[in-house]
Simulated scan of single mutants.
Amino acid sequence: MFTGIIEATGRVVHCQLEGSNTSFTIQADLASELKIDQSVSHNGVCLTVVACQPDHYTVTAVEETLRKTNLNEWKIGDIINLERCMPANGRFDGHIVQGHVDQIGTCIYKEERDGSWLFDFSYDPTFGNVTVEKGSISINGVSLTVFNSAPDSFRVTIIPYTYDFTNFSTVEVGDQVNLEFDVLGKYIKRILTGYQP
């Protein structure tokens, strides 16, 4: 489980297609603290470390992950948001983030406003995901508060710290991002609507 509070960023230094899977090698300062089999959130996607060195490590994304996230667009040099699992004795500073991306969203608006940034994102509502005004969402692994909630879009505000220390500084209009909707909202919706064909 994660909290959506990004610890560090990493840089993609190698991509390798392996059958229907893709392995990514990430260069990051926290690589020396990782171990094989550890789960790490990469732009909101929980991936398992399969190899590690002092300055880089490797993870593998399976076909299902590549299909539902923007990982199939990653290229060498891309900056990735990183968060290790929350320790059992840690503070819960964000919200419950599972690292299971629900779908891709698209940046449709970006504006700097007196030191902060406004971002609007759209998403396909046919997947059944919803946002709630002042509720939580994870965008590329970052825990954020939703406003201007609509059936197929929402807005978030990014403070300078988050803009500077995550990959939000690289997100532009037209870019795709990984969205994980609030898990509590998903369970409540399932209880109310049941299983639909």
Rank of each mutant, 00 (worst) to 15 (best):
T58S: 08
E180W: 01
F181P: 01
T162F: 06
V177S: 02
C52Y: 09
E63V: 11
E64R: 08
T145C: 09
H100W: 02
F119R: 01
V97L: 04
T126W: 07
T9A: 04
E172C: 15
N129A: 08
N89G: 07
D102M: 02
W74Y: 14
G77S: 10
R155G: 04
M1G: 15
T9E: 07
T9D: 06
V62K: 10
S143K: 03
Q196N: 14
Q196A: 12
S122K: 13
G90T: 10
G10Y: 03
D175T: 08
V45A: 01
K75D: 12
V171S: 00
F168A: 02
S116A: 15
E172R: 13
L17D: 14
F168S: 04
F119Y: 12
H14A: 15
L118Y: 13
V130R: 12
A88K: 11
A51C: 08
A61S: 13
S116G: 11
G99E: 03
A31G: 03
F119S: 02
Y195A: 14
I108D: 11
F2M: 01
V177E: 05
G105M: 05
S122W: 08
N167E: 05
N89W: 05
G194S: 12
C85A: 14
N178M: 04
N81F: 04
F92P: 08
E33V: 05
I36F: 08
D114K: 15
F127C: 13
T145D: 10
S136K: 03
D37P: 03
Q53W: 11
V130W: 07
H42T: 05
K189E: 13
W74L: 12
G185E: 00
C52Q: 08
F154C: 06
R84A: 03
V101A: 00
Q27V: 07
E133L: 14
P54L: 09
G99I: 01
